[in-house]
Amino acid sequence: MKDEPLVSVVIATYNMGQYLPDAVESVLNQHWKNLEVIVVDDGSEDNTPDCISRFKDDPRFRFVRTKNQGQPKAKNLGLGESSGEFVAFCDADDLWHPEKLRLQMPLFEDPGVGIVYSEVSYIDECGVEVSKSRPYTRYSGWVTNELAIKNFIPFGTAVFRRACVEQDGAFDETLPMGIDWDLWLRYSLKWQFQYIPEETYIYRLWSGQMSRNYRGRYDNAVQILGKFLESNPDVVPPTFVSRAWADMYVSRAMAIANAEKTFIEPLKDIIEGLRRDVSYWPAWRSLIKLILRRV
């Protein structure tokens, strides 16, 4: 891009003092210089203020402290404190690649593009690189149909226009989880998404992260998909709606089966998935896997 428009990066944190400084530093070390970093401390009880005190003299850095209200409100508070034409997020235990914004921002030269996202790499809790397969196909363009089936966008990789927030709102504060999928579904109705294959975001895998709460994740996913389809009844074609619900039930079934080594509950979910879309081959594959484990 000829000029560097301001990018606001929000880092919402809760008791992440051990990882937060590295996250902040990775954003401030961007080759893209016109940015601001807003750390929202959601009522941490650890040494978070001391851990990031070294950044207080950097004019691009701001620290906002609030009582504990949960991540949707913390992220929205950060959005309200930001002033950039573009917005991005970094989780407090993750990292940005220094080339992230330089690689992603040029795609916004197309005024119809609202969100640019990328591929992700992984590290463990000690910062050691972890090899992990890429389970999802990524899509560009008008992605509502595909996005209804699967949230294929790694949240921290995404950069989006402030105009998206102004037109279609911020995070739904009634949702404790899955807030990014809800956001992307709403934005996909008016904006195109663009994907780049470079790994610009480094996701940390460790035992304390919320993403391990698979039951809570799927409870919220069912709510999010149902609300979106009810609010936009004619947007997603019936075949995609059936496929979306089939994938929901089958994915939940295998998450429970893998974590809890159970049979009956996952079986019921897979059968419900097949009832929604009998041609959905991953459901048949999952059914075979489940039965073979039982034998």
Rank of each mutant, 00 (worst) to 15 (best):
P59I: 02
R134S: 06
G127N: 02
L101D: 07
R138M: 11
Q71N: 10
Q209A: 11
P98E: 12
I196S: 06
S26H: 01
Y214E: 09
S242C: 10
E25M: 00
V9R: 00
G80A: 04
V27G: 02
P72D: 07
F152N: 05
E99V: 08
R276C: 14
T174M: 09
A283L: 11
W32P: 06
T262G: 03
V236W: 04
V39Y: 03
A74Y: 10
P98A: 04
K73L: 12
W32K: 03
L189G: 06
D277R: 11
E81V: 03
L95R: 15
D219L: 14
F108A: 05
R186E: 14
F171T: 12
V24N: 01
L103P: 08
K289M: 09
Q18E: 12
S118Y: 05
S211E: 13
C126T: 09
F108R: 11
A158E: 06
V235H: 09
D57A: 00
D277C: 14
S44K: 00
G178F: 09
R162V: 11
T48Q: 00
W245F: 15
P282A: 09
D58G: 00
T239Y: 09
L77D: 03
V10G: 13
N220C: 15
G80Q: 14
Q18V: 07
I196E: 08
A259C: 05
F152G: 02
S8Y: 12
F89N: 04
Y195D: 08
Y249I: 00
G17W: 01
Q18H: 06
A74S: 15
D22P: 00
K73S: 06
P135C: 07
Y14L: 13
E125S: 13
I202Y: 06
I224V: 14
S8E: 12
L147V: 05
E81G: 01
P197L: 08
S211R: 12
S251I: 03
L95E: 13
L183P: 01
N76I: 01
P233M: 01
F263M: 04
D91P: 08
L95K: 15
E45D: 10
G70M: 05
A148R: 02
W181I: 05
F61P: 02
R65L: 02
P98G: 03
I202L: 12
V143C: 07
T13Y: 00
G226W: 02
